[in-house]
Simulated assay, not measured.
Amino acid sequence: MSINEILQNMSRRKMIGQGVYRRVYDLGNGYVLKVAKSKAGRRSNKKEVKLYLSSPYRVRKYLGKIVGFKEDYSSLIMKKYDQSIPETEKYRAKCFKVTRKFRKKRIFPYDIIHRGKPNPRNVRVKPNGRIVVIDYGNFKDRR
């Protein structure tokens, strides 16, 4: 199913999240659709797509997988990650370690850590235990 077909059937989609600039819908097939509400939302989608496609594997493996997007960046499809990040010292340390890995590649992450703890709105855990950032539209890429 193409992204255009998905957008035509939006009335059947369940909204699972919303930010200032974008809405997130569950597609029911293991993927989510992020739809921009404004120009700033399109910029966030564009930044996520460009960052995902241009990042080296060392950091891309920590980014939510993008599988499709509209050329005007009004929407994108990302793999859905359900498992919330546990509030443990182990995962807190993992988040700080991932932040350092991004910074070494001159990518400056925001909202991975919030008030000294992993941000549960933006960080999830893959089945293999690796953390994954699901919202990286506000990262700064200085490469």
Rank of each mutant, 00 (worst) to 15 (best):
A40S: 12
R103L: 08
K101A: 10
L63V: 11
P120H: 09
Y110N: 03
K90R: 15
P118M: 06
V98F: 00
I112K: 07
Y81A: 05
G41N: 02
K117G: 01
Y91K: 02
S54I: 04
N9I: 07
K94W: 04
K65L: 05
D111H: 05
I113Y: 08
E71D: 12
S55Q: 06
P56V: 15
I112V: 13
F69D: 07
G116A: 13
N29H: 14
L33E: 02
E5D: 10
K94S: 10
R43C: 00
R43D: 03
Y110S: 04
E48G: 05
I113W: 08
I77R: 01
K14S: 14
V24N: 12
K79H: 05
S38E: 05
T99Q: 04
K117C: 03
S74H: 12
Y62V: 13
Y21M: 14
R103T: 05
G28K: 01
V32C: 04
Y21I: 14
E87A: 15
Y25E: 05
K97R: 11
I66Y: 09
K50S: 08
G17K: 13
V32G: 02
M15W: 05
R42T: 02
K105D: 06
I77E: 03
F96P: 03
S44I: 06
A93P: 09
N9R: 08
E87I: 11
I16R: 08
F108G: 05
P118S: 15
S75K: 07
R106W: 14
K39T: 11
G116R: 04
L76M: 15
G68I: 09
I107C: 02
Y52I: 04
S38M: 12
Y25P: 03
L76F: 06
M78A: 09
L63S: 13
H114V: 10
G41S: 02
S11G: 01
Y57Q: 14
K101Q: 07
S75C: 14
Y31S: 15
K37R: 09
T99V: 10
G64I: 03
R58F: 02
L33F: 00
E89Q: 04
R106F: 15
R12W: 09
L27K: 11
L53I: 05
M10D: 08
R43E: 13
I113A: 06
I6F: 05
L27A: 09
S55G: 05
E87T: 14
G68K: 08
R60D: 04
Y21N: 14
G19P: 11
E87F: 15
R103F: 06
K90I: 10
L27E: 11
N119H: 06
L63K: 12
M10R: 15
K47A: 06
K94I: 13
S84K: 11
R58S: 07
R23S: 08
R22P: 04
Y91D: 02
A36D: 10
R43F: 00
T88H: 13
A93W: 15
S55K: 03
G19Q: 12
V35E: 13
V59Q: 13
G17Q: 12
K97F: 09
G41P: 02
V98H: 00
M15P: 00
V98D: 03
K117R: 14
I66D: 02
L51G: 02
I77N: 01
H114K: 15
T99L: 06
